[in-house]
């Protein structure tokens, strides 16, 4: 039986223009789903909870999806009950999401809540699904600075896809416009908690200043008058190559980039 993979997609937000776009991580979740389709002969469903008239959905479809499923929700509705309800009955094996949405609350809770509701394990921040054998998936987690951790998990599971996963393929205008976007009636539940919040444009956060807590007058004077450490670095001109290399090596050791 082919695997059922569901990639959840949301409406992204461009960090510079604030314009709606295909979300980075959701795009990667679709890409991962499409690649699994090639390797595992799985079926991919791309699912969105929101409005089927949303133009951004066309940019996901443009990756080469013949159709998208939409659970019709209004702006103020909570996506989790609708998605949970759908997935209960969808017979899915793998649910892929982004780590955090680019619009809305961006809390990153959707995969956790879905996993909790379905009673499935959740794999956070994955970079790739290496293999699936006998109902057990070998997964690479993304750690900071390009490091990876291997984890195995039995199907079915929910995974959030990190920015380290393969980049979403280019979206093409023609297939995107031609794709069928099918709206489905969904369980609607108004997000009451959110209604009580106040939302405003992000205020710039003050940078933390180096506060000197001086005990003596001399220390305070020093803190107030001391020149900041000069920006100019050390330049070695006349030293031999060996000395220069030693100095560089010392710095590398200090910075712990070599062990």
């Amino acid at each position: 039986m082919p695997l059922n993979v569901v990639s959840l997609v949301s409406v992204g937000r461009h960090p510079q223009s604030g314009r709606q776009r295909r979300a980075e991580q959701d795009g990667r979740a679709v890409e991962l789903g499409m690649n699994l389709k090639v390797v595992q002969n799985s079926q991919l469903t791309v699912l969105h909870a929101g409005a089927s008239s949303e133009p951004v959905l066309r940019t996901y479809a443009g990756m080469g999806l013949p159709e998208l499923k939409v659970l019709e929700l209004a702006e103020q509705d909570d996506a989790v009950p609708a998605l949970g309800d759908y997935l209960q009955s969808a017979n899915a094996d793998i649910v892929l999401t982004g780590v955090r949405a680019e619009s809305g609350e961006s809390s990153g809770m959707v995969p956790y809540l879905l996993a909790e509701q379905l009673g499935w394990p959740l794999v956070p921040r994955i970079a790739d699904i290496v293999s699936i054998d006998d109902g057990v998936a070998e997964i690479l987690l993304a750690l900071p600075r390009g490091q990876r951790r291997a984890v195995s998990v039995p199907l079915p599971f929910v995974a959030s896809v990190d920015n380290a996963a393969a980049e979403a393929r280019q979206t093409a205008y023609g297939p995107g416009m031609r794709a069928r976007i099918e709206g489905n009636k969904a369980v609607t539940e108004v997000d009451e908690v959110r209604a009580g919040w106040q939302e405003s444009d992000a205020k710039p956060r003050p940078k933390r200043l180096k506060v000197v807590k001086a005990k003596t007058a001399a220390d305070r004077f020093k803190a107030a008058t001391a020149k900041p450490q000069g920006k100019a670095g050390k330049v070695m001109k006349s030293e031999s190559a060996k000395e220069q290399a030693e100095e560089i090596f010392k710095l590398l050791l200090e910075e712990k980039v070599i062990k």
């Binding site: 776009r21 280019q170 979206t171 205008y173």
Partner: peptide
């Protein structure tokens, strides 16, 4: 139709559309 603009093409087009 194919979405196969090579190298930085896709990124540049995304930027043009978004910004």
């Amino acid at each position: 139709e194919k979405g196969e603009t090579p190298n930085k093409g896709a990124e540049i087009l995304d930027n043009i559309i978004a910004t």
